[in-house]
């Protein structure tokens, strides 16, 4: 049923991939997020549609101001003619699967523009990203958006996955986290292209920046750019947008040139989703006692026979695109 709907939404009667009307985008993303069976169709469509889009990763500790900053940055890019989408990720509870997705709150005020904004729960995704982050980003690019901003969950140092899928990576910090500079040295700080010192209106900013400079000077590798912003007022946002615009498009930009590492992550994820789906569908046919090896083997065979994960050509197709 979904597939019919999707077919109609994504393709012209003649079979040509089209841009669906804006009001359907949200629904299509839900399908991309949850419906493995629809993925081949979606990816086929995306392959035809996607042009180069910049994936901008935004990470940093909870409350550092990521959402507020993204709200301003997105508007800045929108007004300079880009078509902007935001994927804002918050953690799903391991226990209940539920989530409170609160990033929209900070971006609401001002409204009335074309920016597409979607809140996502991780749904089992690791490293600060949602399971379906890349797929959704790709679909957004298929809609014709050329600036896609991804806000990670904000678990800070462990949000390393963002570096595999986006370029540039913005690490948002706030003054008054002196002790945390030490901790930040590892983890995502290594991968950040810009360190944004947000809340620069706070009095402890100079002090913080000095500590940051010190920490940086001790580093052997390439030192990231440090920029100050006050996201609540918008100060520094134009500079940040300018920096992003001037930056040469790196090897990780866009879908046509995902890094091999990111591509592998992406493919693994796709494969995992479909495999899982295959198990779910065949669970009735075979036993599910986890210690019954014979039953388990039968079940795996059933999955393979059912060809739910079959049609490897879909994956081949994808591979052409990402490598």
């Amino acid at each position: 049923m979904t597939t019919d709907w999707l077919q109609e939404a994504l393709f012209e009667p003649g079979g040509k991939a089209a841009v669906p009307p804006r009001r359907l985008w949200g629904r299509i993303l839900s399908i991309a997020e949850a419906d493995a069976a629809a993925l081949p169709r979606l990816l086929e469509w995306a392959q035809e549609r996607v042009r180069c889009a910049l994936l901008i990763g935004v990470t940093g500790a909870p409350g550092a101001g990521k959402s507020t900053l993204i709200g301003k940055l997105a508007r800045q890019m929108d007004s300079s003619g880009h078509r902007v989408g935001v994927l804002a990720i918050d953690p799903s509870s391991d226990r209940t699967g539920g989530a409170v997705l609160g990033d929209r709150l900070r971006m609401e005020a001002g409204g009335g523009d074309d920016i597409f904004f979607r809140s996502m729960a991780t749904r089992g995704g690791r490293g600060g990203l949602a399971r379906a982050t890349v797929i959704c980003a790709q679909v957004l690019a298929g809609f014709g958006l050329d600036r896609i901003i991804i806000e990670t969950t904000g678990t800070g140092q462990t949000d390393t996955a963002i570096a595999a899928v986006s370029d540039p990576v913005l690490l948002v910090t706030e003054p008054g986290q002196g002790d945390e500079i030490q901790a930040m040295k590892a983890g995502v700080m290594e991968r950040a292209d810009v360190i944004v010192v947000n809340k620069a209106d706070l009095p402890s900013t100079d002090h913080f920046c000095a500590a940051l400079d010190l920490a940086m000077s001790a580093r052997a590798s390439e030192v990231p750019q440090i920029l100050r912003t006050t996201s609540t007022s918008g100060e520094g946002i134009a500079e940040l947008a300018g920096w992003i615009a001037r930056r040469p498009v790196g090897p990780r930009s866009g879908f046509t040139s995902l890094s091999p590492e990111a591509a592998t992550d992406y493919l693994t994820e796709l494969f995992r989703v479909r495999l899982r789906d295959g198990f779910d569908r065949t669970s009735d046919d075979a036993g599910s006692d986890p210690f019954d090896i014979v039953a388990l083997t039968t079940r795996i065979d059933a999955v393979i026979d059912s060809r739910v994960i079959g049609r490897l050509t879909d994956l081949d197709l994808l591979e052409k695109e990402v490598t």
Partner: peptide, 10 residues
Amino acid sequence: AHGHPFDPLG
């Protein structure tokens, strides 16, 4: 004067 929007609700 603080760089915030005149009308916070836009």
